[in-house]
Design a protein around this nucleic acid. Structure first.
Length: 435
DNA sequence: TCTGGGGTCCTAGGACCC
DNA sequence: TCTGGGGTCCTAGGACCC
């Protein structure tokens, strides 16, 4: 058996911990640039705000309905997530951290009443962290996900499922008929792995519920759709096809991309932006002890500005040898940028991706024909830079082509006009309690 | 006026090899 | 005149996830 624990309305709930006055009010958390909704409270959902909806379309609700819209504060969310994960780990022996607000727990070997145990963990998360979460239990990941959906809906949408499943739902202890009853009440689009496209195709074939999908023949599904959907069907039938990952698989690529706060037309600010993105990506690369073989950079205009001339190009630049060196990666990225830049466009977004990742140990030995700084010296330099930046703040030491620290805010930089304080990761932002 | 960021996996088709 | 079969690797595009 597997459990899936998931924080309800994660980002909004995390903000509410530090601002209880937000309880009961419609609240959304916005993506970078205050672009669109990435988390909604139940009250915001009730106002009709959709996941991913652009902010400008519902901005009027601030005035009309008391909506509170906040800029994303990922420093806060990451820290709260760490605390949640360590409490959730108490539910079973093994943990897979699936995303910032979700974790699978293997219940193999756990004795006793799983539902009662889950309720205790849930209560602890609520009392210690102030975060509401839901627990779904099932024999496969897809069924645990579905159970989690049932647990959430039963609590928040009375009538959608029997109330006994609220907060914690254990599919493993239902009779086949009882399980099918829940699957029949679940729209096919709610199933993990069924997105908008496949959902549309399934509905067009008359398959509208999880129960109907689970009753299809898996081999037929592979022929008519794909092996991906076949796995989903088998998982719904109780056969595990998606394995439990005890430790995270090494990343295959690392990206740092941003939409700009305002359109950018010149090369110089693009160089600044790309330098910054490449620096961030190289830092991530070193943190996970890998080297990259190639650097990809892209720039593009906004597809939403229909009247603008459109331009979108990318270029892959091989590194002379795999490395995690900020200077090498930045200069390769700028080389690529200069090759694809064309004046006369309103650029809206750019990014750097690092590819062909490999462990930073056991690299190929190189016969150095030119008098290049040996790689190990560059490695020590990068460690020193990381140490300084960890201790004195991000960007204390930076590459020359990036924006000087004291320079005025560049137009390309992200807009975060509604950012909340970093309550748990900055001394100055810590809340004070008067007794 | 204003529309996020960071990932994964699968498939089809082409180039190339013996 | 008649020109195979089996395999790998790479890339682009599509679908999905949170």
């Amino acid at each position: 058996m597997l459990a899936l624990l998931d924080i309800n309305n994660a980002y909004v709930s995390m903000e509410r911990v530090f601002r209880p006055s937000l309880n009961g009010r419609p609240v959304v958390v916005l993506s970078n640039n205050d672009g669109c909704a990435v988390a909604r409270s139940d009250e915001a959902r009730a106002l009709g705000i959709k996941m991913g909806q652009p902010f400008f379309q519902f901005r009027h609700l601030e005035e009309d309905a008391g909506l509170v819209a906040l800029s994303a504060n990922f420093g806060l969310y990451g820290d709260m997530s760490d605390r949640f994960m360590s409490l959730a780990a108490g539910l079973g022996a093994e943990q897979e951290v699936y995303s910032i607000d979700e974790t699978f727990i293997s219940l193999d070997g756990v004795r006793g009443d799983l539902v009662a145990r889950s309720r205790r963990v849930r209560a602890r998360v609520l009392q210690w962290l102030g975060l509401p979460c839901s627990v779904g239990i099932g024999p496969t990941k897809t069924l645990a996900k579905l159970a989690n959906h049932v647990a959430k809906s039963a609590e928040r949408k009375p009538g959608s499922y029997p109330a006994e499943h609220a907060q914690v739902c254990h599919l493993g202890r239902l009779s086949p008929a009882g399980l099918d009853e829940l699957l029949s009440a679940t729209p096919v689009g709610e199933i993990w792995g069924v997105g908008p496209r496949i959902g549309e195709q399934l509905r067009a074939s008359g398959i509208t519920t999880a129960s109907q999908l689970a009753k299809l023949d898996a081999n037929t599904v592979r022929l008519n759709w794909s092996v991906v959907l076949e796995r989903t069907v088998r998982e719904l039938q109780g056969t595990p096809c998606i394995s439990f990952e005890d430790e995270p698989a090494p990343r295959q690529q690392i990206a740092s991309t941003r939409s700009f706060g305002a359109p950018v037309r010149e090369l110089e600010p693009l160089i600044q932006a790309i330098s910054e993105f490449a620096t961030r990506a190289a830092e991530k690369l070193r943190r996970q002890r890998t080297h990259a073989g190639r650097v990809m950079i892209f720039i593009r205009t906004s597809p939403f500005r229909k009247r603008d001339a459109q331009y979108s190009r990318f270029m892959v630049v091989p590194l002379r040898r795999p490395c995690a060196d900020t200077a090498d990666i930045v200069s390769s990225a700028i080389l690529g940028l200069k090759a694809i830049f064309k004046p006369g466009f309103n650029f809206a977004k750019a990014g750097v991706m690092l590819m062909d990742l490999q462990p930073d140990t056991g690299g190929q030995m190189e016969l150095s024909l030119e008098d290049d700084q040996p790689a190990r010296h560059r490695g020590r330099l990068m460690r020193a830079v990381d140490d300084v930046n960890d201790r004195f703040g991000k960007g204390t030491l930076r590459i020359g082509s990036a924006k000087p620290r004291q320079a005025p805010q560049g137009s390309w930089e992200t807009k975060l006009e509604r950012r909340t304080p970093a309550y748990t990761t900055e001394w100055a932002a810590m809340l004070q309690v008067r007794c």
